[in-house]
Design a protein around this nucleic acid. Sequence first.
DNA 1: GCAAATTAATGATTTATTCAAG
DNA 2: CTTGAATAAATCATTAATTTGC
Lengths: 227, 227
Amino acid sequence: MSPVAATRWCPTPEQLMILEEMYRSGIRTPNAVQIQQITAHLAFYGRIEGKNVFYWFQNHKARDRQKLRKKLAKQLHQQQHHLQLQLQQIQPKSMSMMPQPLSNIIDHHNHYQHHHNHHRSYDHMSFGCCSQGIGVEAQSKVLSEHYCNKSGHEDMLMQRPITGQNTSYGRDWMMMMDMGPRPSYPSSSVPVPYCNMMMMNSPKIPLKTLELFPISSINSKQDSSKL
Amino acid sequence: MSPVAATRWCPTPEQLMILEEMYRSGIRTPNAVQIQQITAHLAFYGRIEGKNVFYWFQNHKARDRQKLRKKLAKQLHQQQHHLQLQLQQIQPKSMSMMPQPLSNIIDHHNHYQHHHNHHRSYDHMSFGCCSQGIGVEAQSKVLSEHYCNKSGHEDMLMQRPITGQNTSYGRDWMMMMDMGPRPSYPSSSVPVPYCNMMMMNSPKIPLKTLELFPISSINSKQDSSKL
DNA sequence: GCAAATTAATGATTTATTCAAG
DNA sequence: CTTGAATAAATCATTAATTTGC
């Protein structure tokens, strides 16, 4: 048996530097094709597989967020005190300021009434608090933005395909799968709802065509097809 | 146009943290005055309206309860199960053949076994330098992964293969990914220092390694995607 | 100086959550 | 309401740093 490769991947300094540079310059969740390419290039410096690249970005991003969160939490810990004081000023005897254990009881008590009241007072609101493609993702986006803010890309950051799936690994993997098992559909017509146009994150192109011709043309077609 | 504002509210990390802290400290159904106050405070960190605060507490409370319910249900179920077992012990009948969801039992006993034969693998990687034998190792991995495959239940026997990868949804696409890395570099290829290539924000992709990797067309857009 | 012991980092997996399509 | 896709969070496991006693 092969004496090597029975252990976890350990990035060489070169690989690490490149990955970090990529991260710094904004890559967070590379799609399948990107991963492929990154992997191919990093392979020059040592053993590496696609999954290593995938995991590296996942972990790095997560730990970045984690770090940032701790930082913010610390910062806010002080504000916390301040806030509480102010809240107490608002309603010195408010039940809502009671310690947690009582919350359930309290809640039961005034649920009906409060709910009713508020509902009334906000009668005019539109109840569209859901059903758009923004959510946790966006939040984390904000986080990472805080961390590696580049310039004025904020609006781009917030943009997500409004109705569509998030761009991501999933579809890409499927496409790769198509390479092997079964070509369910001709590579020209891909049955995936494309909505990311401006979002530019998924080359929904069967991988096999990668080395043959520029994908941009296809992309542009798709772009115009939606939205 | 002005960045956003036409989309639903998306709490900034600071806002979220403050809201969560308030929730933790007992606030469940803030009244109108409180909402106003909270809103005013949170407005410091970003766009926010009273209704956002209102809905946030509403949703958070609801989901909290939901979580709790599930948890309790689970506990109860377990207790029942234990009780049953105890009863059966008292009155042992045909316990031996008791049909049980094996998955539960089998499940969490993984823990891989160690492999201490490998710190060797660094030898040829020599931190600091590069440009040598890569390429071959990946195969063994692919091979071993090939065994524990979905769809076959005989694989249960193989579960927790000694060297690594656990079963799971991850593996499938990793295998797919393995198609790509293709560590076998064309002999001519030179490791262009290449960090920028993948993420050049420029919409038009300059690029040096173009001849080898058709990245340009793909990357041109995606790269800026996630930054 | 040196390993054994301990701790910190980080690669790899698993679990929980979220969104929205059916 | 259920379910699939995506992925963030939590966790596990191993490797590197480091501390420690000799």
